[in-house]
Structures are given as structure tokens and as C-alpha cells.
Design a protein around this nucleic acid. Sequence first.
RNA 1: GGGGGGAUACCAAAGUGGCCAACUGGGGCAGACUGUAAAUCUGUUGUCGUGAGACUUCGGAGGUUCGAAUCCUCCUCCCCCCA
Length: 404
Amino acid sequence: MNFKPVDEQLAVIKRGTVEIVPEQELIEKLKKSKKENKSLKIKLGVDPTRPDLHLGHSVILRKLRQFQDLGHEAILIIGGFTAMIGDPTGQNKTRPALSLEEVQENAETYISQAQKILDESKTTLVNNVDWLGDMTFMDVVQLSSKLTVARMIERDDFSKRFENNEPISVHEFLYPLAQGQDSVHLKSDVELGGTDQKFNLLVGRDLQKTDGQEPQVCLMMPLLVGTDGSMKMSKSYDNYIGIDEPANDMYGKALSIPDELIYTYFELVTDVSIEELESLKQKAEEDPRNTKHELAHTITRMYHGEKAAEAARKHFEETVIKKNIPDDAPEFHFESGSTVRLLDIISDAEMTSSNGETKRMMKQGGVSLNEEKIKDPGFEVTFENGKEYELKVGKRNFARLISG
RNA sequence: GGGGGGAUACCAAAGUGGCCAACUGGGGCAGACUGUAAAUCUGUUGUCGUGAGACUUCGGAGGUUCGAAUCCUCCUCCCCCCA
């Protein structure tokens, strides 16, 4: 491996990074690595509790990928064991512990999605069940003696729960130790994590020191703000863009982020070069509309390819800007001459979740047939030979009704 | 081991015998507006029914009552305080 100069590597590593603890140690490690022509071990632990990955997860995975591209060894730890504990970080309640089978299943989905971002051939996959699972109770007791309760309850998530009279289980205290033990086991040089992982990452450092190892450098990435512009991207807030989502949705959702986030998204979730980033900062301010389209295009391209990204743009323009019916709207056929209540058509097509909702939408002007708003819940459609209707229910629910 | 508090719709949280399909906030949905699926404003938000209305819902199971989310009994789960 021919490593790039340290300062070049550092520039890539620092892209989007919030904090490197301590940065000087990282520089030393990089120097040593180049000198000895030996790659660094970069550790990323993932919790396969929820297998659906979104752009928020991609931030950290992309960072791992960047390390790979710099020639370092990416170690992706599937937290099989830790998932069964449930990471308390940022939680206001105890996470449900998963069974071994669930973890296994989730892990597979997770890996297959993560490979879209990582360089599959160069990723070392491990599961911490393999070493944590073998520890004896005595081992655990000894390990836990290295961390004090006072330090644990300093943590925000615990102290908040404590104040709010919410339960904290003892086993949740063991989570950072388990994660730290991973670092000891793997002898990692760098561990990646979100800013919310700082505590856990630092425990890894401490444990390595106790073990006589050279401690890992902790690298924290920001938590990506979701499409709502305020909370971190998360499935439970429904402000996420999934990496498995259809191109059209991806494109549209990317466009819905607030303007202030355009640059951040370019920086954290796209593969545009560092040089390009510079110019994008200004572009985003001067011409947010087009820059955001460029962002949406870039993101969609990364996961679906150039062609699909282009198609997604067209789809967006047609349906959202021009408010036209998309080409791929589902079609429903009706016998010519028949008369059917519109309410029933919508219900059969499952375009709403209940008749009450349909009626409500009708009253509010959310249902239209061939551009004409239908407000009467009893409205009936008569299908004459060859006649076609374009049905719109709500903002983006379309269907074509065809007779014959 | 002892004492106290709690469980309400997607979430948070009022309601403590009829005016409750249930205040309010968040979220969701719709309309207007917009470069946008953003922001803002307005409306709406159990199911069935064109409608009148009917039915189901307030941790679970029973009971009292003309009538219960509200009262009683038992059960399940959770939190706090003292030891």
C-alpha cells in the first residue's frame, strides 16, 4: 500500500468531523502507519436493532469508506452482543433487548445495505458475540470495576432519565464497557462514532490504556439533521431518507430539507470532492433552488445511478411543480357503461386508510377527478366507452381510471 | 420489607358519574401560498354510513347504575420515597 501524505489523509478524515480526540495522536498514528507501511485499524460498531439504514447512518459509514480508500483497514462490528443489551445512548427509555435470531436477521439486512457504501472486498466483518459472549461473570465484574457509578450518571441520557423518574436498568451501565471491550479485543487504532457516542468511545480508550495498549483515537461525526430541519434523522421521527428508498422519494425528500442544510448534506452524505465543496457553499446561498436540486440529484445518483436520478427529477417536476399525473400512476379498469361511486373506488384502491378520511379530504378539496375538485361524498362516476379519468387524492396519490 | 403515585387516542397530557368520540400541545392529513414534499396561515384528525345516526375506544377481567374514562372488586405492568 502506498499511503498518501499525512496532511492529505488528514484533510479527508477531517471532512465533516466534529471532533478528534486527540487529534495529535491521530497524526502520530498516521505518520507511523505511512512509515511502517501498515494500515490502521478503524473500528465502527453498529447496532443491528433497526435494519433500515438511512442517510444518517451513511454519514459514519461514508467516513469508514474514506478510511478504506486511504488504505486503512475497516472493521465493521456487528453488535450482536451489545444489541441484546440495548444501547442506552440518547434513549429516554430502556431499549428492548433483541433475541439472537432477530439480531442475526437484522445483521444480514444491515450488512447488505452497508455494502452499498463500503468497499465490500476490503471490509472486515466481525460480531462481538464471538468474544463478549465467552466472558465469565468474573470477567465482567473485573471489567466493571474500571468504571465508577459517578461517571456513569454524569451522562446526559442517564441523568435525564433519573430526573424524570424513568427507569434505568443496571445492565445498561454495562453497555459502554462492552463497547470498550471491543476496542481492547480488536486493538483498534481509531473508533468512529456519532457525537452522542463520545462517552462510549472514550471508555474504549480507558480500557485499552488499562490493558497496556496504545489507546484508540476517537473520531466523532455529527448527527445528521433530518428533513424536518430540527431533529436528528431517525425513522421514528419520520424525517429520514432511506438508502433503500425508491429514487423518486429520495429525490423529493432531499428537496424538502431546509435551505440551511444544503451544504451540510453535501459535506456529510455525498461523494462530491473536497474542492467542489468549497464552491457549493456559496452556491447554496446564492441559488438554493438549483443547488438543492443538484444535491437531490447527487444523492439519488449515488444510490440509484445517473439515469434514475434524471428520471426522478422529471417525476418531481411533473407531479409536484406542474402537478400533473405521473406516468407510472396505477391504472384501474372499469367496465364500460358501469357507474361506480368515487368513494368506493378510492377505498378499493386503498388510496386512503378509511372512508372517513376520504370524505374529509373531499370536503377539504383534496380529491379531484380530471382537475375538477369533487366535494360530494356521494359522487358517482359513469364509465363511458374508452373514457379515461385522472384521479388525484391528496397531495401525491394518483390513479388512472380507464373504462373498457 | 414498608409507604405513596400512576396506566387515557400516534406521542405528551386534561378529564374524576350524563354536556365525552373525549380539552390542549406535538405529530399526521388536507387547502391556500411557495423554487420546494420547506416556512407560514387555515381547516381537519376513531370506524361504518350520502345523511340522520349506529358501533367500538380511556391497562385487563368482572360488578354497581337508567347511564361509567370517571364508583367498587380482583388482576397485570410501571414509577417514586423510606429501609
